[in-house]
Design a protein around this nucleic acid. Structure first.
Lengths: 329, 329
DNA sequence: TTGTACGCGTTATCAG
DNA sequence: CTGATAACGCGTACAA
């Protein structure tokens, strides 16, 4: 069923049908009604792709993230998808993994689809390979980078003050009389580096020497959190508080403390990052740094649609994280 | 940059360029190389939408689910997206909510996009409104229904024996000397009804009367799980075990038991459903019925792509659930 | 108020 | 081996 079929049935030309569909003026009311009736009767729907071919847009938005299964990204994706759809766009979500080749592959794929704009989520994408891929393949469409930065003319950035946030986490622990604090988690992404920077800065501010800081590196899994925490208990009995780079890792840590019979928060204070549901599910519930993922999602989606539709916005927006205190501090 | 631009640069016709792009035979090797070089130089990528217009496909697959934030659906979506992309398709994920109007809206949207196939995830979609929408708008494309059934010629179904699974959960609890068992959770979706049916059947098999069964209805949230469990403790002190219709609800229940000082599993046994990470995060970790969401995901994705590409499969596939025992039983 | 003709970027057919 | 040409479904100047 095409506009030609409808046109024939209505005894008019295809352009008339097109005009009716798009609510253009200058159509006799009786014609309009006749065509509308036919459109309904055959429940005709315009082919959005064919439309895009002539309109030079696809109403498609690419969403690149490493892995949608990480809870904070799931929430973000949900918010973004809802917003986009409300504005008449469809999101194409790509699990681009954490290897640069996969990321480049994802970029090429979105180029093939001629998406109107791209949302990149997660600082793991903040590397030269991806930056080059973007300036090469997305040169003419707006890109919003959530939780990362690219200094490119068509890229908007929405970031969170994770560095400051972690500093405030340290402040909180100190205030709770926990002077010996460790940092445990992933260290490889730019985001992790920001968190670590905040940790170091605050700890040094409280008189610790950088060399003496207890920093454990692991992966983004609860198993890794468990393992790092066991190591911590064995090798650093002086530690009174831990900041984990992600809630999921903290959840693993909480279990290790639980199994070891460590009393939370009396013997050990714990803070996670992301403020996902994991913090609420743990026993006891743990404090987490809310890095405003849902707020970031709505800002990013809004800015992207604005850019696609020609409305301007600041190239960089900074959100402020918040500590959500629970039983672990 | 179009094939015409490349053609001009190469001094050949657009058809030749097209043939090179699609690796068609019957092109002089020197011509092929010359064109390929240009393609690379200008990093040209064919417009997939324009391609689809003539090929009568879009390489787009619609994925309808109520809410991607429910953990079991997130995992499923991940697996599906990976598979689809590997096969050259893109997934359009729609959070279609749980209201029928929203669902119908999602169906219309996917029709506009001319998706090659649709994956419907979750038994909440198993209602007449959606069924009608499908037979009206997706009459000519394959549809796979994960965790639900429609008796329509173009719909494939992948389901899990949740009814049997819950029966086996009851068996397990009985075997653990827990004779007084309650069921708590959502009751509105067909899937929930299946679970409830299994519960009733097993309980009656063990000599209980249907009227005396303890069944609590709530929502799919940990808060609801918490509340139902408090109610349970107050009004049904005889209960020794609970089966929750979802892990998330069970997680709320676990917290209620924890707060009330109820010893798990000695005083109370707990089983959730979905085998998500929530079971592993709770303290103690709780047993869960694995309803094979990732297996369902790969089967559904495979069947859908098969159908889109003209390969046949059984119209209905049943997977078998498994109890993953943890500390709560 | 309506129809004709063309173009969007691509592939397929057919002729050369 | 290669090039015209038509077609996919739609929107829009331009003409009537």
């Amino acid at each position: 069923m095409t506009i030609y079929d409808i046109a024939e049935l209505a005894g008019v030309s295809a352009s008339t049908v097109s005009r009716v569909i798009n609510n253009k003026p200058g159509i006799k009311e009786s014609t309009r009604q006749k065509v509308k009736a036919l459109l309904r009767e055959y429940n005709y729907t315009p082919d959005e792709n064919a439309r895009g071919l002539v309109n030079k847009n696809t109403k498609l938005i690419g969403i690149m993230l490493a892995d949608i299964r990480s809870a904070h990204h799931t929430d973000l994706t949900y918010v973004v998808e809802k917003y986009l759809r409300n504005k008449g766009y469809c999101g194409i979500i790509l699990n681009a993994g954490s290897k640069t080749e996969e990321m480049e592959e994802a970029v090429r794929l979105l180029e093939k689809r001629r998406v109107d704009g791209v949302l990149i989520v997660g600082s793991v994408f903040q590397n030269d390979r991806v930056k080059n891929a973007i300036s090469k393949h997305f040169a003419n469409i707006p890109v919003v980078f959530a939780n990362g930065e690219f200094n490119l003319p068509n890229v908007y950035c929405v970031i969170v003050d994770e560095c400051d946030g972690v500093e405030r986490c340290v402040d909180l622990l100190i205030q709770k009389q926990k002077r010996n604090i460790a940092f445990a988690g992933t260290l490889d992404s730019p985001s992790s580096q920001e968190k670590l920077k905040g940790f170091k800065r605050a700890m040094i501010r409280y008189g610790n020497s950088e060399e003496a800081l207890v920093i454990l590196e692991g992966e983004a899994s609860k198993e890794s959190g468990y393992q790092m925490t066991q190591e911590l208990l064995e090798q650093h009995p002086e530690i009174q508080g831990v900041i984990y780079s992600e809630d999921l890792i903290a959840a693993g840590g909480m279990r290790a403390f639980w199994n070891a019979g460590v009393k939370i928060p009396d013997e050990m204070a714990v803070i996670g990052i992301d403020n996902t549901i994991y913090g609420e599910l743990s026993c006891p519930q743990f404090t987490s740094l809310d890095n405003k993922m849902t707020e970031m999602a709505s800002e990013a989606a809004r800015i992207l649609v604005d850019a696609v539709e020609g409305r301007q916005n600041p190239r960089k927006i900074m959100l402020f994280s918040d500590i959500i205190e629970r039983e672990s501090t």
